[in-house]
């Protein structure tokens, strides 16, 4: 699943790897909504910074990508790890600013979802995003988060239970 129609990755990725700035910008345009969708529920108040940092990491290291068709799954790994890292480091110190809720759909519902997610740890938010939103299987989520499958399973159970409990309050 990508952030929009499947772009011409087979052309754009090698061009960007070779220093073509227009191809780099085209990749940024297709990656941004995808990365933002992954990162925002994990990083919450730091969503814009986490999205920006993730995209910098993805594009700066693009030369290391062997297979252009794997761009989105490769970006997903970088983005989720970066979001967890940023959320973990700021959750200990930061006073959160309210995030911008997108101006579509039910704004109160979006605010409620944000509030519930805000009560969870970044690790729980990440596993919830990967398993229940991205639809990844346990093995892929475990590899992506660099934790054992058992940890993914237990985190997911706790995250779902925590989400349900907070949602009902």
């Amino acid at each position: 699943m990508t952030g929009g129609g499947q772009p011409d990755l087979l052309r754009l990725v090698p061009a960007a790897q070779g220093g073509d700035a227009l191809a780099l910008e085209a990749l940024l345009a297709v990656l941004e909504p995808y990365v933002a969708r992954l990162v925002s529920p994990i990083a919450l108040g730091d969503a814009a910074d986490a999205t920006q940092e993730s995209l910098v990491l993805v594009l700066r290291n693009l030369r290391g990508l062997q297979e252009p068709a794997a761009l989105f799954s490769w970006a997903r790994t970088i983005a989720v790890r970066q979001a967890v890292h940023m959320a973990r480091s700021t959750s200990q110190t930061a006073v959160r600013e309210p995030v911008d809720i997108p101006d579509h759909g039910d704004e109160q519902f979006a605010a409620d979802v944000h509030d519930v997610l805000d009560r969870m740890t970044p690790e729980h938010r990440a596993v919830l995003v990967l398993r229940d939103i991205e639809g990844l299987d346990e093995r892929t989520a475990s590899r992506l988060l660099d934790v054992p499958r058992g940890t993914v399973k237990s985190r997911l159970a706790r995250a779902r239970a925590g989400f349900r409990k907070a949602w009902q309050q």
Partner: peptide
């Protein structure tokens, strides 16, 4: 799940991303 929080960078941050990515 379209109501999950999401964000848009805006043009200036996009240029910052490109500046940080272009040697």
């Amino acid at each position: 799940m379209t109501n999950l929080p999401s964000t848009e960078l805006g043009a200036v941050r996009r240029l910052q991303v490109l500046a940080a990515s272009i040697p």
